[in-house]
Amino acid sequence: MVGTASFVQNLGNSVKKVSDSKSSSWWYNHHMRAASRAIFQRIPLVDLVLEVRDARIPMSSEYGQLRYFPSSSRNIIILNKMDLADRSKTKEWMAYFKERNYIPYAINSHNKDSIKEFLNFLQARVRDIRRSTHSSDTRTTTVMLVGIPNVGKSAFANSLHQIGRISAAEKGKLKHSTVSPQPGETKNITSLKIASHPNIYILDTPGVLPPKILDAELSAKLALTGAVDDILIDQSELAQYFLSILNLSDEYKNWAKFSTMDDDGAATSVGGSSGGSELHKKENQIVNDHTQDIVVQAVRRALFDEISAFKGNMVDEKDMVQLIEAQFTTVLRKAFNVTSNPCGDATGMVAAKLINLYRTGRLGHYTLDSLPRSHM
């Protein structure tokens, strides 16, 4: 699921241009270079490496430096943000990695039960390693988290730390890693205790991207999922790329219950006298807050109706561009209640709201990477 070619190329080329720019203060800056060296030096010294990937892009979010180290039973691939990905596709990717002798594990770092289950799994792996190497029961085990920016390493480390301390009944002020929706916030390697008996410490490391990205499709996926700082990317390109993915998927069909289609199959206008505006006026709802359920429903309804009523060919590039133009400049403005304002950026506002809803799972669950053809 990669979207329409023109939107992939537009967004991908924008990201590539940033990565090629030597004047960029964010892309592979001195923090990333220093972190990359430090991680490379420490990987051989730790007991386990947890490579955290984004479950929406299981292959595209690979941490390239691990290619320099042989795959072994001491490397575990963590597919984080499983709650945002297509569940059936995540199972397929898990099977794919297992067939290639990797140890995969899918998690939601914000779900306590998911973290508890993984912590039990990790402790069992540590015990197995100790038995196989005849290590002392009192020896401390060190686990390193690695990954590209914004795959959720710090949130994962903090959750493990919190659940681990509660399970071990340890008291005291909680040390934690910095968590931010913006990629690249972690600057240093942080050590957190996550288990006792045996003692296990986890090293949270900064996210590192390769110095350059040559593939436009890969660049587009990294940008859409938030691995690249949004300030570097045209948000309208990001939103249009997402719409090209949504339009080619079946996700919108789940929103049929929100439809305002009449008996003849014609879509009524969201935001009109009988559409979204009535919903927006409900008590205690904030019209301009796109995270309100009533607004999210209006967006789903608008997209469902527009796609369902579309008579063109989705596979045809020109037809897809025509549909996205209508969705982006007319339908979504009404659904989000964004009015044209000479002093404001209506297009940017619509794009930012749409991307936020996608990234928080309010507009469906998408796995952007397809399995290699040889596996399908």
Score class of each variant (00 low, 15 high):
residue 5 A to W: 13
residue 12 G to P: 03
residue 16 K to D: 08
residue 16 K to T: 11
residue 38 A to W: 08
residue 39 I to C: 07
residue 40 F to H: 14
residue 63 Y to W: 06
residue 69 F to P: 00
residue 71 S to Y: 00
residue 77 I to P: 03
residue 78 I to D: 06
residue 78 I to S: 02
residue 88 S to E: 14
residue 88 S to D: 15
residue 92 E to T: 02
residue 100 R to D: 05
residue 117 E to S: 12
residue 119 L to A: 08
residue 127 R to L: 15
residue 128 D to H: 02
residue 134 H to Q: 05
residue 136 S to F: 04
residue 144 M to A: 09
residue 163 I to K: 03
residue 165 R to A: 04
residue 171 K to E: 09
residue 173 K to S: 13
residue 177 S to P: 03
residue 190 T to D: 10
residue 210 P to A: 07
residue 210 P to M: 08
residue 217 E to G: 11
residue 227 A to H: 05
residue 230 D to R: 13
residue 240 Q to D: 01
residue 243 L to A: 01
residue 249 S to A: 01
residue 257 K to T: 07
residue 258 F to M: 06
residue 264 D to M: 14
residue 276 G to M: 05
residue 279 L to Q: 02
residue 280 H to P: 04
residue 282 K to V: 13
residue 285 Q to D: 01
residue 295 V to Q: 01
residue 305 D to N: 04
residue 311 K to C: 06
residue 311 K to Y: 06
residue 312 G to K: 00
residue 314 M to T: 11
residue 314 M to N: 13
residue 321 V to T: 13
residue 321 V to I: 12
residue 323 L to C: 06
residue 323 L to W: 05
residue 325 E to P: 03
residue 337 N to A: 15
residue 339 T to M: 09
residue 340 S to W: 12
residue 347 T to R: 10
residue 361 G to W: 04
residue 363 L to P: 12
residue 369 D to V: 05
residue 372 P to Y: 09
residue 373 R to Y: 06
residue 375 H to C: 02
